[in-house]
Design a protein around this nucleic acid. Structure first.
Lengths: 137, 137
DNA sequence: TCTTGTATCTGTAGCGGCTACAGATTGCAT
DNA sequence: ATGCAATCTGTAGCCGCTACAGATACAAGA
């Protein structure tokens, strides 16, 4: 990762679609390694950095937390097995599915209730009723 | 809301299943009105406070943001029409549906990819491949 | 070489929606 | 009077960024 560091943070940002501030943030929290610098102190990145950042971005797009990405990168760096990676992914999948379940419950309640609204200028509203309800006392 | 303020914050917390710290937080941000106090400075709540807090908790359970709840409470306090409330709810519904769509896309990608994993001790992993990919260049 | 304009630097604070302390005070029962 | 629980205020932390301010560095043109 030392050789052929030949572009700056702006270029890296453009080529990965990751915000400059976010790149520096990832470095600060140890997700992206500190790159070499110019004499003046500007960061210089290589292809390897770019690839790692793309990995991070893709993982974020798939909803992995920073901690999970840390794990994944650790595995990828240090000779992983498919089983190990799969375990992280399946665990994350559980989280996602729980969130979907929660959101779908919200959606159903809201959609059903809003459908019962007369709308317009009526001074009564089923939605207000639902929000005022305490469900399980 | 001044009369018959006859229970403390612990009691309110128990009766609404809202954390004590959260109750004070809601007061601080102006979601729950500042209640009267004892001589020593302890908060004293009434039925009206409890109802309002239940409304807030229900709204949070349905995913409304604090800002949206502010709006809803404003409407409810000041003579709402069904149409106004419905508008807030339908807008929120859109947000929820967008989140569900996003999560489902994550779920599908992850589930599909994990299904292609050989698992075990194989040193190759389709998940790593997917995470390394830049989708739309 | 000098200047201009952009890029980058560090450090800090803010977002939302809480949660978790520390350290002081109050309330109530014995 | 005493002991202990409840409550008080104020501040800092969580996540994953984002947005400044104010100081430098760099690259291109005159």
């Amino acid at each position: 990762m030392v050789d052929s560091c030949n572009f700056g943070i702006g270029e890296l940002s453009r080529r990965t679609a990751v915000n400059i501030e976010t790149i520096r943030y990832y470095e600060r929290i140890g997700l992206l390694p500190s790159p070499p610098r110019t004499e003046g102190g500007h960061r210089l990145y290589s292809e390897a950095h770019r690839k790692r950042l793309v990995f991070i971005r893709r993982s974020r797009e798939l909803g992995f937390t920073i901690d999970e990405i840390h794990n994944l990168l650790g595995l990828v760096e240090g000779g992983y097995t498919c089983g190990e990676v799969q375990a992280v992914a399946l665990d994350h999948l559980k989280h996602i599915r729980r969130k979907i379940t929660d959101l779908r419950r919200m959606e159903r309640t809201l959609a059903d209730t809003a459908a019962r609204c007369a709308g317009g200028t009526s001074p009564d509203c089923p939605i207000v009723d639902v929000l005022s309800q305490e469900l399980r006392q």
